[in-house]
Nucleic acid binder design. Sequence first.
DNA 1: CCGCGAAATGTAATCGGTTGCATAAAGCGT
DNA 2: ACGCTTTATGCAACCGATTACATTTCGCGG
Lengths: 334, 334
Amino acid sequence: MKNDNAPRVQDIARMANVSTATVSRALSRPDLVSEATRDAVLKAVAEAGYTVNVAARNLRRQRTGSVLALVPNLANPFFSKIIAGINSVLRTRGLTLLVADTEGGPEVHAQMATLAHRSRADGLIVLDGCLPAGILDHPACPPVVQACEWIDGLPGPRVMADNRDGGVLAARHLIDLGHRRIAQLTGPANNPLTIERSRGVREVLAEAGIEGRTDWILEGAFSLSSGQQAAREILAMADRPDAVLCHNDEMACGLMGELQRTGLDVPRDMSVIGFDNIDMAAHVTPGLTTVEQHRTALGVCAAEVLLDLLDGASPPPVTVLPVGLLVRGSTLAR
Amino acid sequence: MKNDNAPRVQDIARMANVSTATVSRALSRPDLVSEATRDAVLKAVAEAGYTVNVAARNLRRQRTGSVLALVPNLANPFFSKIIAGINSVLRTRGLTLLVADTEGGPEVHAQMATLAHRSRADGLIVLDGCLPAGILDHPACPPVVQACEWIDGLPGPRVMADNRDGGVLAARHLIDLGHRRIAQLTGPANNPLTIERSRGVREVLAEAGIEGRTDWILEGAFSLSSGQQAAREILAMADRPDAVLCHNDEMACGLMGELQRTGLDVPRDMSVIGFDNIDMAAHVTPGLTTVEQHRTALGVCAAEVLLDLLDGASPPPVTVLPVGLLVRGSTLAR
DNA sequence: CCGCGAAATGTAATCGGTTGCATAAAGCGT
DNA sequence: ACGCTTTATGCAACCGATTACATTTCGCGG
């Protein structure tokens, strides 16, 4: 063994008096070698503290045994459960999940381009709708599944919640409670989730004969602080809505907290409804009424679609998962 | 170019009428080749859509250009900011951060063992105190920095907040407010963070001549729901405390929410203090008084220590970052 | 005791870049 | 014009494991 380095197959082969081929087989296909040989190899491995060089194996095998998830913002609790779902499925197949945060500008995208390569991962699950399509439909890029968000013009299967229907459920709930003065706190205007959710809301409002007041549509950033900011804007309005439909729970919580801090009572003075059903939603006071999407299931589904893809099967191009309304205390009949 | 495959250096070399060595240099050390050659190579690269095979490069170079963070639970918002801090530093050095979730039993640890290999990452930042030391002091394992939590018996630098002092600050704050009936909601009993924090609390209580009531020390799991659970236990007590010192903000929020739902007023009926200052803490009602630790700074620091290690420098074996008390509305003078 | 298929093992090519060393070409000072 | 330093490029070994193919060994029926 070269002095400064970790042991290699060669070293193990010498120690066990076999060829490198046999060592390799003893480790990855134990059924192919005799018991005596296997024991000798394993003994040498243990003794030398050998572990395979993954780069060499990946190079030769032309696959990596791992899947990469590209997440727009790891700090967003929304994603964590999806990741957990993905992980649970991949583990059953012996695949390792790695996660990279895609936050940042073009210079980060360049980094992502080197990540999105067959020699890095066997498959990609992309949760970020803002990546340039170019790096993902490159021939060197492994199979891609898009989850939650999606990238226009990028082929390949998608898995997502029924965002439009979520908008419908939320809006209808408020209307059923007698609200007609409904504000919206959306995500970034160009975000596909927000576009879909808005569509559902708009449909229901129109159906109910409620005029869409554009001054009651606020644009947020899916963050607690943008919810807080929105609350301030609403409080400053001469003509206030009496319900706010938020496009995610974080904004709803931020908004609700700020309303309360200013002395308003939620839901008596204002109903608030969120979207996603993150853990926090059940624990704030009052409990946040929200549109539940099963994030773990979404991750599971995305992973299964990816596995299909890797197996050469043809998964459905689009999978839409149902959402449901979860009524807690933050909404009240007018 | 072989038909089914991505182009290789060979192909680019042929297209640009140079050797593979020149192609490689044109891409990674552009200053070493003439402008004409460089242009020819880049043109061929663009035309063929070439991207390097990372496995091959890593194998030859004996490094990967990436750092791996092992996180016990990605779903915990506590970690996300640390990750962000790490990322910001690594980017400036052209390193890519990958994250893996270490959640799970021994079978997952086996997976982690193959991740913790020089051929996978140039360095490791371990945020999980529960990994077996064996896989991290293996000779094939790249340099390791432990952050937040740490593993007994594992050498290598550590970066952490001053948890003991955090316990001191929190306890002293409650005592200064006149509380003497102080309960604690800790993390898992064997968790090093909890051990340190408890130590600080114990010191202050002893100093103030307050007996430590073990029936007022509840063990949680750092989660919202374990905070909720603890609230129920406290409410069921015949002899209730009038302040609860929680070992993290999530539990504090879970606890506070449940107390409020049962009709108690925080902070009038009970003061609640947390630890960490996660985003949510500022947005719940009332705002959560907490011990602030600068998670981004912690990540930054851990990354810098790792870079030192990679550069062959000898960073300090232990870095302790100061914490501070952040008083909001959830604590009140008795 | 021969022959043949199965089981076990070895040999060596291969994955795809990178880089030390050698060589060639160009610049330069005197 | 000559040696000498730079600069530019090519050649080929190398990183470490895997695996197709070849070879040996073994068991066993005839």
